[in-house]
Amino acid sequence: MATLLAIVDPGFDDLSALKRAEQLAIDTGARLHLFCCDYLHDISAFSSRKEAKASTLAQNKAQLEALAEPLRQEGIAVSTEAYWNSEWQESAVHASSRVGAYLILKSSPLKTPGSDSEAEVALLRKANSAVLLVRDSAPWTHQRILAAITPDGDDSGHDLLNNQIITQAHRLGQATQSTVHCVTALEQKLQIVDVFILLADNHLPDEAEVHSNEEHISQRFGVPPERIHIHLGPPREVILQTVEELRVDVLIIGTVARHGVKAALMGNTAEKLLSVIDTDILVVN
Score class of each variant (00 low, 15 high):
E81T: 09
Y39F: 12
Q168Y: 15
S16E: 02
S115A: 07
G114R: 04
S97C: 13
N163A: 10
P109T: 15
A77E: 13
L40N: 11
Q89I: 13
V284K: 08
V261T: 14
D9S: 12
H158P: 05
A21I: 12
T255N: 11
A82L: 05
A21N: 03
E271M: 05
P205Y: 08
I281R: 00
L133M: 08
Q174M: 07
D14I: 14
L161R: 04
A25L: 09
T279C: 12
A138S: 12
V210N: 03
E187V: 02
Q177F: 07
L105R: 00
K272A: 10
C36P: 06
P225N: 10
R236W: 08
E65H: 10
L71W: 09
K61V: 07
T28R: 01
S97P: 00
F196D: 13
H170F: 13
A122P: 00
Q241R: 09
P151G: 08
R227L: 06
P234Y: 07
A169D: 06
K126W: 12
K50N: 12
S86R: 11
K111I: 13
C36D: 00
Y102H: 15
E214H: 06
E120G: 01
E90H: 03
G153Y: 14
L265K: 09
A62F: 12
F35W: 07
L190S: 13
K272C: 15
K272I: 10
L186P: 02
D9P: 12
A30K: 08
M1V: 07
T28W: 02
D155G: 09
G173V: 03
V238W: 03
L67W: 09
Q73Y: 10
R125T: 03
L146C: 05
E237Y: 14
S16W: 07
F46E: 10
G267M: 04
H94M: 03
T255E: 01
R135Y: 11
Q168G: 13
A138T: 12
V93F: 02
D206H: 11
G29V: 10
S97G: 14
N128S: 15
T56P: 01
S16V: 00
S212A: 12
L265E: 04
I104L: 12
T167V: 07
D13W: 11
S91H: 03
H259P: 11
V131H: 01
I7G: 11
G11D: 02
F221Q: 03
L40S: 03
E65A: 08
I166N: 03
A127D: 15
K106S: 05
L105W: 05
G173P: 03
L24G: 05
I43H: 13
V180F: 08
H33M: 02
A58H: 08
L198N: 13
E22I: 13
N162M: 03
V243M: 06
V248A: 04
R49S: 12
K262P: 09
W140K: 01
A95S: 10
I76D: 07
R258D: 14
V78G: 00
G157P: 00
Q164L: 09
D249R: 01
L133N: 01
E214W: 01
E120P: 02
G29S: 03
K61S: 12
E118F: 10
H259T: 11
V8K: 09
T28G: 02
A101E: 00
A92Y: 05
V99D: 04
E118Q: 13
P109S: 10
C37T: 08
F35N: 01
A185H: 04
N60T: 00
R220H: 04
